[in-house]
Design a binder for these strands. Structure first.
Lengths: 191, 191
DNA sequence: CACCTAATGGCACACAGTGTCAAGATGTGC
DNA sequence: GCACATCTTGACACTGTGTGCCATTAGGTG
């Protein structure tokens, strides 16, 4: 069974890789699923067995780091202020980004500049917010109906602002530093 | 020329109205553009001359109040702290919502529960954030690269959190009060 | 009446996404 | 080795969104 799963992963990785390459070269809207599957050597039908939509091929690359951040959030000590916990999760995400700076920058720019991708990405982020808020509430110290939602929302807003500025500077500015500034402006540490 | 424009508006309103009715009854995904134009008495091609996409018919209803809020932001006195200005703009939006509570609630629930609509809505909101940040910077008092972006982002996050909670309570809670709480949690007034 | 502009309808087309079924590969028990 | 269940795949057909193009019609102007 494990061999089958590895085979599946192989096909998925190949599709991701080919898609990223084609789209980076020719643009998102200009690249059809047909072209992707032709280059990957599978049928069009198979593509949609691995990805729910064309947008998902690109957005899933980012999604991975987001879900790792959510998972990390659950491991933070119970007594820690929620704003600090969320901040650590964010730092983890930025760390992931900075592991492949050029690739991350190109991906971020493409998502921010392509309406269809941006919309899908923001929707994913919306779900992260719900999950992050739920994780905070699960080991929560206060009553808080809106509170954890706001903290999670502010955190991802800070990430957004930092990413937009980073992409706008074409990577010349330091992403971690931008995130620091954004978080401090919101007073996230004291929430 | 003004007669022509009024005629155009008439067709657009009819399409909006029919679409809202059909989609409210049968659901968003289950309603096709074909059904909408048939009920409105125009051709399918005409529909796409008035709306860029099927999603836009629904999302534009919300968009109207968002753009009014952006416009209102530009009219705030120059000396006012940005957090306070943004807060007033939000109050204006909530006021618009509360003018038609039942309709607004149904619309909000539908957008939040339908992935395709939610994604489009969040993308619109992303643009509002950019416009709001630009409006604040235009009459800005500080240096602030990230600052206005954060303030605008936090404001819309507060709106989001309030709307989600409002929709979740099925309208039993007071939207204006929820927004107050959300803004206070973020300390928006002192930004 | 002739003329211009703008809106419309109808058609064809590209592309995304889904259901269905037959064929092939893989792993299991006899 | 053989039969069997399972999973993946490819191929086909189909629905639905969105766009380009062109002929027709309505409204306004000289």
């Amino acid at each position: 069974m494990t061999l089958l799963e590895r085979k599946r992963q192989l096909v998925k990785d190949e599709l991701s890789h080919v898609a990223a390459q084609l789209i980076a070269r020719n643009g998102y809207e200009e690249t059809t699923v047909e072209q992707i599957v032709e280059a990957a050597g599978v049928s069009r039908r198979t593509f949609f067995r691995y990805f729910r939509s064309k947008e998902d091929v690109i957005v899933e690359m980012i999604t991975v780091v987001g879900e790792r951040a959510i998972a990390e959030l659950a491991t933070r000590p119970a007594g820690e202020p929620p704003g600090v916990s969320v901040r650590h999760a964010l730092d983890g995400m930025v760390g992931d980004y900075c592991a492949f700076p050029a690739k991350s920058l190109a991906l971020t720019r493409m998502i921010l500049d392509t309406p269809a991708l941006r919309a899908r990405y923001l929707d994913r982020q919306f779900e992260w917010r719900r999950e992050a808020a739920a994780a905070l509430a699960r080991r929560g110290d206060g009553p808080a109906d809106l509170r954890y939602g706001m903290i999670a929302g502010i955190a991802f807003t800070a990430l957004d602002v930092a990413l937009v500025s980073w992409a706008g500077s074409e990577g010349r500015e330091d992403l971690a530093e931008l995130l620091d500034q954004a978080c401090d402006l919101a007073g996230l540490g004291s929430l």
